[in-house]
Amino acid sequence: MATTQETQKTETPAAAEAETATLDVFRYIPEEDDKPHTETYEIETFEGMTVLDALIKIRDEQDPSLTVRHSCRMARCGSDALYINGTQRLACNTQVSELKQPIDVEPLPRFDVIRDLVVEMSEFYNRMESVEPWFQPDHEPETGDEYLQSPENRKNIDTVLDCIWCAACTSSCSPAASDSDFPGPAALAKAYRFYKDEREGEETRRRRLEMLENSHGIYRCHTQFNCTEVCPKNISPTEAIMEMSRDAIKEKLRFWR
């Protein structure tokens, strides 16, 4: 342990060629400001520095009033989705060295701003709730007390299960911005997770599809692929939505089958 610390100490002055980064950060403090403004900060970077590291450094060393929501710092909790250089990204999953300077940091677009980079998420949670994202089996388990899922069935939902509710996709989706009844990509990917789950049974599957199958549901998707592009967990909500809408149409065209 001591040796690693020593090597770090000896290496740091050599590696520190005083590389700096400039950040244009969106600032809005409701008690002080009528309107948001942009503040520019210059910081020294280190190798492997993420945007979240940079923001924490600004808060620690330059401006303690800077507010940013973060928790796990490893792209698992989904608290720090921000609008960085024109794209929704997780601040903890974005390297400062990969970005063009000055780095433009804003809260997620299309959400109300509570303070600085923190947005009001309750609208997003309402959207998530609207697709009933909980397990609703329509029958008793066949064997024992547990509902068993086949590995093949589990494979269908491997990717959508990774969702961390960061709201990056819903913020990037223009139909979701113009239609508050549209659940948005994250919620529909979540709906897909339950729609594909064979343990819920045929009756629930059909009910879920009927619930989503309207002009404020799956048919609202314009296949812009914004959600797929911004998802930090490489989920493709577009794919999930299109698969559900294909199934819904096939169900309508009964002569087809």
Binding site: Y28, R110, V113, I114, E120, A177
Partner: peptide
């Protein structure tokens, strides 16, 4: 419990 938040609105988008 909603605090007074700033609606950035369409124009800013």
């Amino acid at each position: 419990r909603r605090v007074e938040s700033y609606d950035r609105g369409r124009i800013e988008d």
